[in-house]
Write a protein that binds this DNA or RNA. Structure first.
Length: 173
DNA sequence: AACACGATTTCG
DNA sequence: GAAATCGTGTTT
C-alpha cells in the first residue's frame, strides 16, 4: 500500500472519484471485529442538485446534510428498513455529491457488503481521511483498473435522462 | 399524527 | 412475483 487517500482525492467531481475508487482498499479496524481489508470493485456516482436519483437533489435536509459538507466523509442511507448503503461524499462544501460503494471483490450487493463488514448508521458523517476505524488506501499499482460502465441500479423513478446515465462503474476481472 | 416509499435481498 | 421493515420527508 502506498498510503491513505488524502482530502484532495475526495474533493474532485464525483464522476472522477467514482471510477477512481475502483481497486482501492477499504480498510476496517473496528474494535472487536479486528482488522480487515477489502478491494472496492463496483461504484455508482450520484451527482448533486441536478441528478434526480441523488437524494440531495430535493434539497438539504437532516439526512442529506453530510453530502453538502466537505469531501471524504461518509453518508449512510438505510433502504427498505434493512440495508445500509455506504456512500463516500465527494467534491467540496455546498456541492452535494456521493459515491455509492456497490460491491467489494468477492462480495456482491451494497446491502450485503455493509452487513459483512459491520458498517451501519454510526458511521454516518465519519471522516475517511482521519477515522481510526475506517479508511481507504491506495492499492499497490496506484492506477485505475479496467472497468465497464452502465446505468445505475434501482433508480428508474428518477426518469430520463438520469435513469440512463452510465454512472455505474464495474471493475473488470 | 398519519402516510407513502425506497441507491435491496431472499425466498417461493 | 412478493414480502420484510423503518427512517425520513411530506401531508393532514
Amino acid at each position: 500500500m502506498q498510503g491513505r487517500l488524502d482530502r484532495t482525492f475526495f474533493r474532485h467531481d464525483v464522476l472522477e472519484v467514482a471510477p477512481g475508487l475502483l481497486g482501492k482498499l477499504l480498510v476496517m479496524n473496528d474494535e472487536g471485529r479486528g482488522k480487515a481489508v477489502y478491494t472496492i470493485s463496483e461504484t455508482e456516482a450520484y451527482k448533486g442538485g441536478v441528478d434526480l436519483a441523488c437524494h440531495a437533489s430535493k434539497g438539504r435536509t437532516g439526512r442529506t446534510d453530510v453530502m453538502f459538507g466537505d469531501g471524504g466523509h461518509i453518508y449512510m442511507y438505510l433502504i427498505y428498513g434493512m440495508y445500509w448503503m455506504l456512500n463516500v461524499v465527494t467534491s467540496s462544501e455546498k456541492v452535494p455529491q456521493a459515491v455509492l460503494i456497490r460491491a467489494l471483490r468477492e462480495v456482491s450487493g451494497p446491502g450485503r457488503l455493509t452487513r459483512l463488514i459491520g458498517v451501519d448508521k454510526s458511521y454516518n458523517g465519519e471522516d475517511l481521511v482521519t477515522s481510526l476505524r475506517i479508511g481507504i488506501y491506495e492499492s499497490g499499482e496506484g492506477i485505475i483498473p479496467a472497468y465497464t460502465t452502465g446505468p445505475r441500479i434501482g433508480i428508474d423513478y428518477a426518469g430520463e435522462p438520469w435513469k440512463s446515465m452510465p454512472w455505474r462503474y464495474v471493475m473488470s476481472l
